[in-house]
């Protein structure tokens, strides 16, 4: 059973790829790394927090995770996705917390108080591997 992915070009690149398949690959690599460091042999679940600005398609991500975790200690792990709302400050100084879904939020992103679309994004652009459950 293969537990590690083949090395990439250099160490720094390990975590720096994106979009559903590359996100999945980074998540699985990091989850395996964390599990191995704590002596675990099998990952049961993976919890991710994804900012709504990331425009990730959760169904594609689930599918990609199934593919990239095959034959690893993360094979079959359940994926839990927590949506992190967008926090933004508009030109009038209002700070809004904006919820929605990953794919459609961007088209309607505006201040919840004055509807301005002139926004500075404060939060909502990250992908955090929060925790894993492992045996």
């Amino acid at each position: 059973m293969r537990s590690r992915f083949p090395p990439r070009l250099c160490g720094e690149q390990l975590q720096c790829k994106m979009h559903e398949l590359s996100i999945a690959q980074s998540v699985v690599e990091n989850a395996i790394d964390a599990a191995e460091k704590s002596g675990a042999k099998k990952i049961k679940s993976i919890e991710l927090e994804i900012g709504l600005m990331m425009m990730v398609n959760p169904e594609q991500l689930r599918f990609a995770m199934e593919i990239v975790s095959k034959g690893t200690i993360a094979d079959g792990a359940k994926l839990k996705i927590i949506k992190k709302k967008v926090k933004a400050r508009c030109k009038n100084g209002h700070v809004s917390t904006i919820g929605g879904d990953f794919l459609h939020l961007m088209s309607s992103l505006s201040c919840t108080k004055c509807q301005s679309r002139d926004l500075e994004i404060l939060e909502g652009r990250g992908i955090i591997l929060k925790k894993i459950e492992a045996d």
Binding site: C16, N30, A35, A40, G126, I128, L129, K130, K131, I132
Partner: peptide
């Protein structure tokens, strides 16, 4: 296992 790793 709490990981809290920023993937990107």
């Amino acid at each position: 296992i709490n990981v809290n790793r920023d993937i990107i």
